[in-house]
């Protein structure tokens, strides 16, 4: 077994050691605005200060995404993006010095073959997969494949998760736990923040080494607030919107601002 790319645990620990409050984790979908354009944007994300890049795989039925990411995914699919393109993007991120995790709806991994996906992801230098619609209870194949290739398996926890479920999620996850407030919907800021803070502390109490928070963060100020209690700040829609509106330049500017908030 060869481990070619950095794993998220090591990356998050390094962020901690350099004295930053939290890591910046940025999401961008493959194939938007084009395959080349998306890879260029992900590399720019790394250069502008993102520690981890969530390489999103567009899916025809993104039931957990809001309108911004839905729209980008539709464009990616219209551009003919294939599952295998995800590995090209992952390699580019790893070569640029970033840590890459794939975020994908489960059917795409399932159809590629869970073991084959794990093997190719490891070869490409990827760290693991964030699985928004796969709970540990349904993940036997993925648990085995991720063990075989020493990949991070990043399950989601929600404010509604019971203590029993939190325990299962923490135990099954490797790298970090993704603390989601409400998936796909950017909620009222103060309320979401309250939920997220509480969720992170519940995850930590349950033994999670690292918890990163994904919610409607769009500014450096908001990132700074979340960075106070989370190990990583996950930003998605705001980056996609920046890329759509102002190309790589606007994406870079927002990333720098967010990274400053996490510093």
């Amino acid at each position: 077994m060869t481990t070619r790319g950095a794993r998220t645990g090591a990356t998050l620990d390094a962020v901690d050691e350099r004295g930053a409050k939290a890591a910046l984790i940025g999401y961008l979908p493959v194939g938007f605005p084009s395959l080349e354009g998306s890879i260029e944007a992900m590399v720019e994300l790394v250069r502008s200060g993102a520690d981890i890049v969530e390489v999103g795989m567009p899916y025809s039925d993104p039931g957990m995404d809001g309108p911004v990411i839905q729209h980008a995914a539709e464009r990616g699919l219209a551009n003919g993006v294939r599952t295998r393109d995800v590995f090209t993007a992952v390699s580019a991120v790893a070569e640029a010095g970033g840590t890459a995790v794939v975020m994908s709806y489960w059917n795409l991994v399932l159809q590629y073959g869970v073991e084959a996906f794990a093997r190719d992801l490891d070869s490409a230098g990827g760290a693991g997969i964030i699985t928004p619609d796969l709970i540990p209870d349904e993940a036997d194949d993925w648990l085995a494949a991720s063990d075989a290739h020493d990949l991070d398996r990043i399950f989601l926890a929600a404010p509604s998760s019971t203590p029993e479920r939190i325990a299962t999620i923490v135990e099954s996850s490797r790298g970090f736990v993704y603390a989601a407030s409400t998936m796909g919907v950017t909620g009222v800021r103060s309320e979401v923040d309250h939920h997220a803070r509480d969720l992170v502390s519940r995850l930590k109490d349950a033994g999670a080494a690292r918890a990163c928070v994904g919610l409607g963060v769009s500014t450096g100020e908001q990132a700074a607030e979340v960075a106070d209690y989370a190990d990583g700040v996950i930003v998605g829609s705001a980056l996609v919107r920046a890329l759509e509106n102002g190309g790589v330049a606007e994406l870079a500017a927002l990333t720098e601002q967010l990274a400053e908030g996490c510093a």
Partner: peptide
């Protein structure tokens, strides 16, 4: 069958 769904909905399904 099964439950291939976001964690946030599991308590509601339960």
């Amino acid at each position: 069958g099964g439950r291939f769904i976001p964690e946030a909905l599991i308590p509601a399904l339960d």
